[in-house]
Structures are given as C-alpha cells and as structure tokens.
Amino acid sequence: MLNQTVTERLDLFKEIYSELYSALKWKSDKRSLMLIAAMYVTNSKEFQLERFLELADYIKNEVGLFSQLRSTHRFTVAATLETTTGNPKENFSHFLDIYQKLIKNGYSRAIYSYIAAGTLLKIDPHRVEEYVQKTVDVYRGMKEHHPFLTNSGDYPLASILAASSDKNKEEMILHVEDHYYALKKIGFTIGNDLQFLSHILALNEDQNPDESAEKCLEVKTLLEKANFKSKKIYYPYIGMLSYLDQVESEIPQLYAIYDDLNNDRLFKWNKDINFMLSVLFLMSDKALLTDAATTGLNTTIEVLLQAQQAAMTASITAAAAANNSNSGG
C-alpha cells in the first residue's frame, strides 16, 4: 500500500506529465516527458507549463541553426535548468560555457556533452575549469580500462563521478574498477550496465566493494522473488536500492508504485521506465527523512536522473536510426 507522501508524488507526476503530453505529444518522445515530469517531482520543484515552454523557446532561439538544442533535447535542458538553478535563463549562458569547455578539453559535440554540462551546473563557477579537466580525465581513465564499453554515452557518468568525489583521477578509476570486478566475481553480467552500476556504488567513497557487491546481489534476489524481471538495464537501480538499510521491508512499497504506474493507461506500455521511476520515487521519499543514513540519497537521485537522460537519449537515437534505415529500404 502506498504511503501518503508517495501517493502525493505519484499524483503530481501524473499531473505534470499530462500537461506536458497535451502540449508536446507531437514534439517529444513520451519517455522523455515522463523523465522531465520525474525531474520536477523528485527535486520538489514547482512546475508551470507556460514558464517551461517559454524557457524551451528561449533555448531554441539562443543557439545556432544547426545546434542539437533546437531539437526535442531543449525540453530536457529546460527541465535541468529549472530544477537545478534559481535563474534558468541567466544560467543558460553558464551552461553553454561549461559545454564549450568540455568540447575544448576533448569531448565530442554529442548530445551527451550537453547532459554532462548539466551535471556541472552546481559547481562553483570559479572551479569549473578544474572540474571540466577532471571530468575529461576520468572519462579517459574509463576508456583505458574498458575501451570497447566506453563511449560518448558515458560522458555524463564521468562528469557525475568527477563532481561528486574529492579523489584524484587514478583513485576514482581504481575505486570504480574494484566495484566492477567485485560485482563480476559474484555473477553480475559484464557490460555497460555493470560499468554504470559500479559508478553508482563508487559514489560512496567509503564503501567496501565486496560488501556492496553482496548487498547488490541481495537486492537482485529480492526483486526476482517479488516478480520483478531480472534485466541488465536495471543494474544501476539495484545499486541505488542497495543504499537502503532494510531493503526487504521496502519491496512491497516499490511494487505498489510500479503496479500503480503499470495500471495507468498513460504509462502501461513503458514498464522498464516505470520500474526505474518507481525506484526514484521510493528513494526520493526516503531522502525526505534527512537523517544521517539518507544524506547521500539526493545526490544519487540526481545522478540517476542525469544518467537516465543519457540512456533515454541513446534508446531514442537508436530507434530513430533504425526507423530511418527501414524507411530508406
């Protein structure tokens, strides 16, 4: 059964999504609109459709004719600016400056570079150069260890890790790698999803890799017993749930959120996204407790939202490419 706070958040999510869908159903992918609605809810930010659309138009008008931000991506950037800054329009130029610094230091002009820039918005402006360089260094370290897994889709992960840690590049990469191989050792399937999970776990710098891997295996087993499908794309969310002390007692609540979304006609065709959002809503509810055990949850929620932007972008881009290929005969 859903508690009052989660029910309120779900109702708000559905309300925001319905407004977005009515206004943008011919301009944006439904999954992206779900993610945007979740960004406002989990960040406890007020949503006003007219203000949001005005900001999206402002972004479109401020960039060049061939910029990727003239496409549907401007809506996600608008949501990022509104949910992470106090003055979105004023901070848009700062956002573009961070993006250009990332390009100058070695990132490609991919949409993922914009998402990475969004993760650095909260950095002290005087330290942006330092963190941009650190971000690119972390990405190169990832590429050295996993050359076939690491690509531009990992740009946001590298920036998130760089912005969330005081460790130097070598220490950070080794900490991630220790988690990666601890997870591999106990049966998690190697690949990009496992790399993503190892980054989530590495955000807790004091975590013992073997212990956190065992906790993840426990969470995975509990989810399977509760009839959640075991999918590699769920790995990062397993990592997030592993932050909870008493995971087993939270599974019924998680399933209730998931079931609620699956039974709503607006969302029933997006079960994978529903699972991911269910974890985010559950964890954001826990973050409201503000006790010592949950102080890192808000950061982790932001991490997953930003990383989910990257995953969503990848799937939408792949689907568009496949459609174009089929259309071309």
Rank of each mutant, 00 (worst) to 15 (best):
L53A: 01
L53N: 03
L53F: 09
E54I: 00
E54Y: 03
L55R: 05
A56D: 06
I59S: 02
I59W: 02
I59C: 02
I59L: 04
K60T: 04
K60G: 05
K60E: 12
N61G: 05
V63M: 03
V63Y: 04
G64A: 04
G64M: 00
G64Y: 01
L65D: 11
L65S: 09
F66Q: 01
F66E: 00
F66W: 04
S67K: 00
S67Y: 01
L69T: 05
L69Q: 07
L69M: 13
L69I: 05
R70S: 03
S71E: 07
S71M: 09
S71I: 05
H73Q: 10
R74L: 09
F75M: 07
V77K: 00
V77P: 01
V77I: 15
A78K: 08
T80Y: 03
T80S: 10
T80H: 02
T84A: 09
T84P: 05
T84M: 08
T84R: 10
T84W: 01
T85V: 14
T85F: 12
T85P: 15
G86W: 05
G86Y: 06
G86L: 08
N87S: 15
N87F: 14
N87C: 12
P88S: 14
K89L: 10
K89E: 15
K89M: 13
K89V: 07
E90A: 14
N91Y: 14
N91G: 10
F92K: 08
F92C: 10
S93G: 13
H94N: 15
F95K: 01
L96H: 02
D97H: 08
I98G: 00
K101Y: 03
K101E: 12
K101P: 00
L102D: 12
I103A: 00
I103V: 12
K104V: 04
N105S: 14
N105G: 02
G106T: 12
G106C: 11
Y107G: 00
Y107P: 02
S108A: 12
S108H: 11
R109A: 08
R109C: 01
I111C: 06
Y112I: 06
Y112E: 14
Y112M: 08
Y112C: 09
Y112S: 11
S113I: 05
Y114S: 10
Y114I: 08
Y114V: 07
Y114L: 09
A116Q: 04
A116G: 10
A117M: 06
G118D: 10
G118A: 11
L120C: 09
L120R: 01
L121E: 10
K122V: 03
K122D: 06
I123W: 10
D124P: 08
D124Q: 11
D124Y: 13
P125K: 09
P125F: 12
H126A: 12
R127I: 06
R127S: 13
V128K: 13
V128D: 07
V128Q: 11
E129K: 15
E129S: 15
E129H: 13
E129V: 08
E130A: 05
E130K: 12
E130S: 11
Y131I: 07
V132C: 02
V132S: 01
V132L: 04
Q133Y: 06
Q133K: 15
Q133D: 14
Q133W: 02
Q133S: 14
K134N: 14
T135N: 00
V136H: 01
D137M: 02
D137Q: 06
V138I: 15
V138D: 05
Y139L: 07
R140M: 10
R140H: 13
G141I: 03
G141K: 00
M142H: 08
M142R: 00
M142G: 02
